[in-house]
Amino acid sequence: MIIEPVDCVVKAPVSLQIGDSIRPGVYVIDINFPNGQAVKIQEIQFKNYYTAFLTVRVLKMEDPGHDSTVKWVTALRDLQLMPNPHSEAGSQDYFAVHKHQMLVEMNDVSTIRLILRQPSAAWLNFTIDEIKIYKCLKEESEIDVPNWLSNLTPVEESSDLQGLPDPENVSSSIQQMWALTEIMQSNRTTVSIGRFDVKGCYEINLLSYS
């Protein structure tokens, strides 16, 4: 099951700096949802590029009944993306911030503001890329048993089923067959048989550069 990320507009990073310092240590990235819609957020995914700390603030509708009350709240404070801001670990890793990690309920969010901080002067630039926002799904869908199978519950015995096998037996044996095929499918492995030739041939002249 593939869940598509929500459409959103990621604005260009804005730097915060005082005076004429050479490089900013803070960037702010705003994310809007099209048509001013408010979203219930499940997860924010991104790829880091030399950001050491991430703070997330969200613009939430406080009381959905009255449309006027919107308020900025901090959903995540200084999540450390790089264990040591001066060295590489975490610098280009993928991250996902799940709603459980947030300080507030991520309902009715209309804007997300990502505040990126990098205290180390070792890096020329920092940002985060490949930002993807995922919505909460309505419900956990159940996919265990196909519908037709769960409908095979024994019906009350009726007279015109004379001579046919017991439906309970049929249903249980079908269930068994189904379970067996499931097992066979999940057992499919990728074991190689160790051959390196193609159709009995491994004569090679040059290596390809691509």
């Binding site: 051959r195 390196f196 193609v198 041939c201 491994y202 004569e203 090679i204 040059l206 290596l207 390809s208």
Partner: peptide, 30 residues
């Protein structure tokens, strides 16, 4: 060929080639 598995966590990539006379044909990549 079971050594090839370790390339999933090794930064190196195994060299590729084609069987003689089959250059560019995907089925003959080795």
């Amino acid at each position: 060929t079971t050594v090839l598995e370790h390339f999933s966590y090794n930064s190196a990539t195994p060299p590729k080639s084609y069987i003689q006379g089959k250059a560019g044909e995907e089925d003959y990549v080795v």
